[in-house]
Nucleic acid binder design. Structure first.
Length: 787
DNA sequence: TCCGAATTAATTTTT
DNA sequence: TTAATTCGGA
């Protein structure tokens, strides 16, 4: 950020680009002799000094937004004497909340403990617990994440006997979530077509089941509070009273439901301050509505508007390139960032043959930068989708460069971690069906499919949770005696664990006993594979984090831990290791790095498919904003790369550089590498597939373990000099009905040689082949080769 | 009931 | 290509 106005102004001021852990001991108790607006530019000062009434701050990338928010809060408390607990500051991520709290702790002598700082979800969860009666929710509700939600929906679909192809669990869950995001309930679908009426029916059962389980999904956390305020004037009044000042960060990414919440909270006080940047709105697909910030002055005609357009982060060149792309958007508030920073070097555009060439070149570039004196932590690689990370990880491991991947399979989503947490969740709330069903036979303990089906039948019959059905299983005539025995053992096991909880043991101790008593740990240890070891490590880490939690948290209870964990994402877990950071552009929002590399600047990739000319133009505009976010993460140098050829699901695809590249001013770019377009139909050293040569060991390779300081891997094969001798082994998949024709002879690994009967469609084409002795088989063309 | 094999589905983006 | 789920045999 390097605000020239700040720098070495003495304690109490620090450069925002320096991670907090580097700042040294917090200056707790220190109050600047000057005012909270000192050292800020006039616009920033205006925003900070604003006291009462609505305020909207358009804060461009790197314009010192966080500084403004924290200083404003500090000003409210320190200068206007507002009680900290009457201020609510909502952020987008837990990490942002943590940073804000930390900075405020340094600015305020009284500390930041009493302030309400958190994400919408975390804040609402906390309020729902406090006002559970008024909002009609269970005090001990558990939070279901997307996977839990999907499991719940799937179970309902099966119970209803619906075709899961037509009613896709993800789609149904999406519909349910969308309706909540709009602030509406089941009624959203009741008047719809046949399909929507079925969704409404699923929705109703879903709500009922969730209630029986004492569970709330992410959407519920906000929806139930808003709904409670709508239906209960006492609750509305209590909350309006409680929060005298409300601040919302990243307001451009709020959805309608969040908008409603904020409106209701501030209706009385009107002390609402929203901060955001419509150019950085990148969550439309999740219901975010840029209108919220763009129309703020319509909602509040008396609002003060402040625009922060001075950027303290990037070079002039980087800003020009970013602006060139985003300014193509039609639907946007016109504005342009400017900076006093250096002109800087040109943006480097790297053309590559294929994705492996891209990885090798990018990593080579990183090595050069590191040699030139940059620290690993100063380098970030951004991509559009997680799937892109793999080749880069391989290249980085080969080069023995420490790296970390943010996102992807979230730590708390790993199977073994979820299993352990499921035990704890059932201990906390045995009616939690999804968790109970997850662990009832994990590790296997003789409770098979039939037993579970009978148990579920009994639960449905009685209209009770699975746990309650489990209690009554002994008198269920449908259950065999051996099944009853197994169920009894499981009951006893959970009884032991629940007793621990009742005795006031914390999550860590319960987890240890659970891993021990269930034999879960022993099963893994017996496996004795690299993957199992990694899983054991992960479990250790979870238990370790529980101990840490018990030691540090204000309230180290099981309930508190479970809540924290479900609302936690990987972005929140960026640590201090000196490693290169890999993440999606979405995950990078709000971060900054001296060096930023953005990979995969190709059509269909970035902009992603679905943003094409036939599609919703809004999609393309969002892709542009996404590119804008990516580029403006960079402080000093920006590298962009694309591959002319890429393997998508093992299928070779020819790619064109992204239209965004065309949109950039030529003179700002420095071109490197391959720029010619390859001709389809000729192999040109795309390299052979790895063919499961054991990279990283086990499914998902190194993804099982946390991504840090990986051992060296085998050399990525793009290092092998490529030449004409390399023929793409999957050539047959490039068929599209041209290469593969009915009547052709093909070979399959298992079925041997057969004759093509029919060529169907599908993304990898489906081909029907008659194999002598096997009959007619429909297969994905990838697994066939010409014979 | 359990395990390995076969099939098939999936690729944006996440609180 | 890979991960997840279903299938089929013991």
């Amino acid at each position: 950020m390097g605000n020239p106005l700040e720098g070495s102004r003495g304690p109490g001021y620090f450069n925002e680009s320096v991670p907090l852990s580097f700042v040294g001991p917090p200056h707790r108790g220190y109050l600047p002799a000057v005012s909270y607006t000192d050292g800020l530019n006039p616009r920033q000062q205006q925003a900070v000094a604003h006291f009462r009434g609505p305020l909207v701050v358009f804060a461009g990338a790197g314009s010192g937004k966080t500084r403004v928010i924290t200083h404003r809060v500090a000003q409210l408390v320190g200068e206007h004497g507002v009680a900290p607990w009457r201020i609510l500051a909502v952020t987008f991520t837990n990490k942002a909340a943590g940073e804000m709290r930390e900075r405020l702790a340094q600015l305020l002598p009284s500390g930041a403990d009493d302030l309400w700082v958190g994400t919408f979800h975390a804040v609402c969860a906390r309020l729902l617990r406090r006002y559970h009666e008024e909002a009609s929710v269970r005090r001990d509700f558990v939070i279901y994440d997307d996977a839990d939600q999907k499991a719940m929906v799937t179970r309902i679909l099966r119970d209803m006997g619906l075709d899961e192809r037509r009613y896709h669990p993800r789609m149904v869950a999406g519909a349910i979530n969308r309706s909540k995001q709009e602030g509406r309930g089941v009624d959203r679908f009741e008047a719809g077509d046949d399909f929507e009426r079925v969704v409404a029916e699923i929705f109703r059962i879903y709500d009922q089941r969730m209630q029986d389980c004492g569970a709330l999904d992410f959407g519920d956390l906000i929806f139930r509070l808003v709904d409670g305020m709508r239906n209960n004037p006492d609750l509305l009044s209590a909350l309006q009273d409680r929060f005298e000042y409300v601040l919302v960060d990243e307001y451009q990414d709020t959805n309608h439901l969040q908008y409603l919440l904020v409106q209701m909270l501030c209706e009385r006080s009107r002390n609402l301050c929203v901060v955001g940047d419509d150019d950085q709105s990148i969550y439309r697909w999740r219901g975010a509505d840029r209108r919220n910030i763009l129309d703020f002055t319509t909602h509040f005609p008396d609002a003060t508007m402040v625009k922060l357009e001075q950027n303290y982060r990037s070079t002039k060149r980087i800003l020009r390139v970013a602006h060139a792309v985003v300014s193509r958007n039609v639907d946007r508030e016109p504005k342009e960032l400017w900076t006093d920073n250096d002109e800087g070097p040109r943006v480097t555009l790297i053309g590559c043959r294929d994705e492996r060439d891209e990885a090798a070149t990018v990593v080579k570039g990183m090595e050069m930068l590191l040699e030139a004196g940059y620290a690993r932590r100063e380098v970030a690689l951004l991509y559009r989708t997680h799937a892109q990370s793999r080749v880069f990880e391989e290249a980085l491991r080969y080069s023995e460069l420490p790296y970390r991947v943010i996102g992807g399979v979230r730590f708390y989503d790993r199977a073994e971690v979820k299993d352990l947490l499921a035990y704890l969740r059932v201990v906390h709330n045995p009616d939690d069906d999804v968790s109970l069903l997850r662990i009832i036979n994990t590790p296997t303990r003789g409770i098979g499919k039939t037993t579970i089906t009978r148990l579920l039948d009994a639960a449905a019959r009685e209209g009770v949770s699975v746990w309650k059905a489990l209690q009554a299983a002994d008198s269920d005539a449908n259950q065999s005696s051996s099944a009853k025995k197994a169920l009894g053992r499981f009951r006893a096991l959970m009884g032991t664990l629940r007793e621990l909880a009742e005795q006031g043991e914390g999550p860590a101790r319960i987890a240890e006993v659970a891993l021990d008593e269930t034999g879960y740990l022993a099963v893994l240890q017996d496996e004795d594979t690299a993957e199992a070891d990694a899983r054991v490590d992960n479990l250790r880490e979870v238990v370790g984090s529980m101990f840490e939690f018990e030691r540090d948290a204000e309230e180290g209870t099981l309930a508190a831990f479970l809540e924290l964990v479900t609302l936690q994402t990987d972005v929140d877990r960026i640590d201090d290791d000196d490693a290169i950071t890999l993440m999606t552009v979405h995950a990078a929002k709000g971060l900054e790095f001296p060096i930023v590399m953005v990979a995969g600047l190709e059509e269909e990739m970035f902009p992603s498919r679905g943003a094409g000319p036939d599609d919703d133009p809004e999609e393309l505009e969002e892709e542009r904003r996404l590119a804008y976010v990516a580029f403006t993460r960079a402080e000093q140098r920006l590298f962009l790369s694309y591959a002319l050829t890429r393997r998508v699901y093992g299928e070779l695809k020819y790619r064109r550089p992204s239209r965004f590249v065309e949109e950039m001013p030529r003179e700002e770019l420095e071109l490197v590498g391959e720029t010619s377009t390859p001709r389809p139909g000729r192999s040109f050293g795309a390299g052979r597939s790895y063919g499961g040569s054991g990279y990283g060991g086990g499914p998902g390779g190194g993804r099982v373990a946390r991504q840090r300081f990986q051992p060296p891997a085998e050399p990525p094969e793009s290092r092998v000099p490529s030449g004409d001798s390399y023929v793409d082994s999957n050539e047959v998949s490039d068929v599209d009905g041209v290469v593969l024709r009915a009547g052709m002879r093909v070979r399959h690994k298992k079925f041997g040689i057969g004759e093509v009967y029919d060529v169907g469609d599908g993304i990898p084409p489906r081909v029907t082949v008659i194999f002598p002795g096997w009959g007619k088989k429909t297969l994905v063309s990838n697994y066939l080769e010409p014979a």
